[in-house]
Design a protein around this nucleic acid. Sequence first.
DNA 1: CTGAAAGCGCTAACAT
DNA 2: ATGTTAGCGCTTTCAG
Lengths: 349, 349
Amino acid sequence: MERRRGPSIEDVAREAGVSVATVSRALRGLPNVAESTRTKVQEVASRMQYRADPSAARLATGRTRLVQVAAPTVDGWYFSRFIAGAIDHLVASGYEAITRPVGDPESRAEFLNELVHLEKRVDGLIVVDLNISEEQAEELANAGVATVTAGFATQRFPAVVVDDFHVGWVATNHLLELGHTRIGVISGEPNHPLAFSIPGLRLAGYTAALAEHGIAVDPALEQSGRFTAPGGRRAMERLLAMDDPPTAVFAMSDEMAFGAWRAMQDAGLSWPDDVAIVGIDDHELAELVDLTTVRLAPRRLGGVAAERLLANIENREPVVADEDEARNASLRWLELVPRSSTMGIDPGR
Amino acid sequence: MERRRGPSIEDVAREAGVSVATVSRALRGLPNVAESTRTKVQEVASRMQYRADPSAARLATGRTRLVQVAAPTVDGWYFSRFIAGAIDHLVASGYEAITRPVGDPESRAEFLNELVHLEKRVDGLIVVDLNISEEQAEELANAGVATVTAGFATQRFPAVVVDDFHVGWVATNHLLELGHTRIGVISGEPNHPLAFSIPGLRLAGYTAALAEHGIAVDPALEQSGRFTAPGGRRAMERLLAMDDPPTAVFAMSDEMAFGAWRAMQDAGLSWPDDVAIVGIDDHELAELVDLTTVRLAPRRLGGVAAERLLANIENREPVVADEDEARNASLRWLELVPRSSTMGIDPGR
DNA sequence: CTGAAAGCGCTAACAT
DNA sequence: ATGTTAGCGCTTTCAG
């Protein structure tokens, strides 16, 4: 079967008895087209099932209506939802999304190497949790790639970030208010290849909350769970094996909290009495085990990131960083969802 | 900041002292280029950071090196993994992936309406679990869009499907072999907008397994869990409320099984003694609750789908369906993972 | 309000 | 082995 290319703008022009220029104008809603002409052209175009060839339009205009979304993975709980939110917004605005996982070192390196050439491929870029350096941001800016970062900030580009310091603070403060004074932390990978800054910020929030209550940090109470359930399980086991185990634990993700839950089961313990646990995310399954958590809104963040990006793009020039307060806005979209993993409440349905 | 377009092929040609045609050939590894010339051109191109403009190349060749992946959602457990597997393969082969969620009725309709125009946008299409009709498949074929379906099959295109009948059979048979005779089912949405065929096939496998053991199907034992954890929970509640509740339950997804687990907790029951449960997927958290499950391999399926698609594309013509046994191959990549939700074994670590 | 024509940057025949 | 040139299908001045 050979590649059959549909009708071209010329076919439509001929059929409608006008010039190609008029067809182009009419179909794109540009001014200076008689209403009667426009109707006629539209009618012919739809009858012939005409649609402008994107490659040709791109070559002529230099705009692709394509956006790249680069995240560590596309199948993680958080990232897949962020991406879903971004795509929904992009598609609704007539853009297509090229998604690309750049988590492992090789793909990350390749991605960073190609930054300069991105301008010809897409109209914009959303980078999620990748901590690109200021030099790399500069490179993107020089190449003229409209960019929005998410989960981290640069000098040059608008950023969509949740206040992870606050996330850590909220979770920890909740435990403190319940009277806990010895609070463990199941954190993320400290020396992660992605130089993830999130664990550090959440930890800082934890530390600050403790300080407000006059409690000093015990380094032995921090165990890495590598952001996975099995990792959380092992971290909790280490915590429980301590001579002086914590009475409460702040897990930096629900999945790690699930692992911690399992470790408690194995030890014959139950929450909230033996150990209270608070997680982060509000994973769908958090409710099932009655896990108290700090709900994040990855879909919404993805949508906001896309929205900001398109705003830039459609202003025809990428808005570079300035003193505008909208820049690097720390969205505070997070909410404590108290459940019985920390409080002796009945979860109901 | 204005859009700065990088060096064009002409700039490189001038700089290297050759014609644009030679540059094009040299850089694309085509034959009939003196090795010395090629080296020279490559050197100049890399010094100038030249990269062919994809839009121009697309217009000239008619090939985009773009593939669309359409799935009900991009953030479901199964779909996000399938997509990840597909993207990895595509990127490794120098293609980019446009992912697109087409689950809800509107986007699904819009997607189906645009099928004809897809040929100009991408080189190929992977459709996951969408059950497009034979007419729609025909439309795609006529438009010349190389296509691979996953999770369902059409006459015209290669399909990558797990044998869902077998999946249902394996799960149910496991329960039967343990001696259960009254086995409930938590199924997916029966009248789902997507006309999902998976629940039906798995149910048929269940029915067949029962029949092999001379057991008749009790329709009251089938409850829909809508493929969500809360749905599974409610379905299990209904099952437990029966006068004559099942002694074992086959849940068509792990997430529904998690919900069922919760319903058992609420009822003060525990597995496998009160009710044995088997799920499907081998979700990361299945291990945490010791859920027996039938492991699927969505990432691998995604990779295979991409691989088949690219094979077609790179043969220069989409391979339409024929008697080849490779067509519609029912991959049997599934594996029973026995855990203590059905057997009184110690899970260990 | 409409049309003619010059590109956009590359590839692919065709020549040499 | 290399160069010349005619498109690819659209957008966008510039005339009228």
